[in-house]
Amino acid sequence: MSARALPFAVALAAMAMVPLFSTSPFYVNLTSQVTIAAIGALGLNVLVGHAGLNSLGFAVFPGLAAYLVAWLSTVGGIDPVFAALVALGGTLAVAALFALVALRTTGLGFVMITMALCQIVWGAAYRWTSVTGGDNGLSGVPRPGGAWLPLEKPEYFLWLCLAVLALALVQLGRFFDSPLGVALRGTRDQPRRMGAVGYDVWRIRFVAWMLAAAWGAAAGLLYAWYHQFVSPHMMAVTASAEVLLMVVAGGAGTLAGPLIGAALVVLLKNLASIWIDRWVMLLGFTFVVIVLLMPDGIVPGFNRLTASLKRLRPGPAPKLVPRERADG
């Protein structure tokens, strides 16, 4: 295990041990929610942090996957695991179609088009009452598992979520280090030059889009199993904005950022509200503070803070390292 992986392993192990110390399943369930949100945020981070594509419609991927698995395993009567696989495939198929539209643009255009695509699916979920149940949603979604893996128990479900999160961290960590990951960041910073040196910018972005969709769908499956209920609210603009908030607050482009951001949002929303009546205001206030003090997110902000503290302390002269030129 490399030194970089150690903090993640410690954090995941600590989360996995919540059931051993918590007296009530409430905190176990809360940890599951943080984990699910973190998986989704990691997915969006591929687009926002590494591809430089700000999406305001990310909730469409978890939403599609959740609706598909919910519909297939309740109305369709299919086994939850098989339904999950079909839902994953279905979400990726739709994502590929959406890519044809969304990846024609970047910048503000991309923000608008992703939001519009999400709104289309939201609208279908809301209005196609005979299939989706309209705003009453679909309830009674069964969790998979059986006697050997009792996923209806909060602690087992948490461990499943953490296993998926670990998988996401390993996969995405390796992807970001791979030549393709470096090329992706190249398309973020200098798309025209990348094109000029022979990279197919569209295809690289397409890979990033599909990767984001896949992890978004994974989060959606866990979401549907966790709540055992899906409704159009999970694809509302505010839901997409919330994931974006997690990524931006935690630190886009970092691996730990989405985790920290997800924990912050979920805990502020669900834990702070126990003691504070005006929790929505607290949420807003916290983000204002983050944006003012750490405009690029908590993780980069914290790194900068420790670096400047180190500089204050007398130590060996810094080694001369050739600095990368910003314009490549």
């Binding site: 009530s24 399943p25 409430f26 369930n29 929610q33 949603g137 609210h233 999970m234 669900n270």
Partner: peptide, 13 residues
């Protein structure tokens, strides 16, 4: 809905 579920868990658990 999702917040409602968490609030219900908070109340019960």
């Amino acid at each position: 809905p999702a917040t409602t579920k968490t609030r219900a868990q908070e109340l019960v658990e």
